[in-house]
Amino acid sequence: MAGFKIRKVFADDLGANNPVFAQVLGICSTLAVTNVLKNTVVMCVGLIFVTALSNMTVSLLRQYMPSRIRMMVETLIIASYVIIVDIVLKAFLPDVSRQLGPYVGLIITNCIIMGRAEAFALSNPPGLSFLDGIASGIGYSYVLIAIAIVREIMGSGSIWGYPLLGDWWTNWSIMVMAPGAFFMLAIFIWIVKGIRDKEEGESS
């Protein structure tokens, strides 16, 4: 039973209910750093950490939490975990922390975290909520990491900071700049939707 539930949580968050494709939620804070893969990965790890732990905490407190101040309490919990991520980055990855600048703090307003707390953690036990946090964090991360890989290769000719394509490649500056992220995300959504529609067409 438990195993089945866990599998369902992962299947949902990674596939059909992937927050990025299904609702285009929560891209604000992370899309901006997808021009470099390394920053994206650090940001995603931070996001997974915050989502999982805040989900668990909300779930632990769910029976005692007065409903009127629920949102405030959730925001406070999320903000605390984000501060922890920020401090840890500053102490152990100072260079990355400097490049991410305010975007770490903006994890607080990432709709996914609040959304999972409201939709899942309030009605599920802590352990499962923790896993749900990890699953939706991963579901969100792989999309952004895919975007970051394409943007870094095409925009800077490198991957994880290492030159990959050599001198013959002319960098597409547009990929590093803001419009590149919009176009890439749109293309990703297009591809995924296209595949999904085709599958539905075949099964019906």
């Binding site: 285009v24 547009i174 700049m177 803001a178 419009p179 590149g180 992220a181 919009f182 176009f183 995300l185 749109a186 959504i189 297009w190 591809i191 939707k193 296209g194 529609d197």
Partner: peptide
């Protein structure tokens, strides 16, 4: 609009073009 792009997809593309224009 191409079927797969309806909704969020086309909005993001417009946002991209707007970002280009604002640049």
């Amino acid at each position: 609009v191409p079927k797969g792009l309806t909704g969020a997809g086309i909005t993001l593309i417009i946002a991209g073009i707007m970002a280009l224009a604002f640049m």
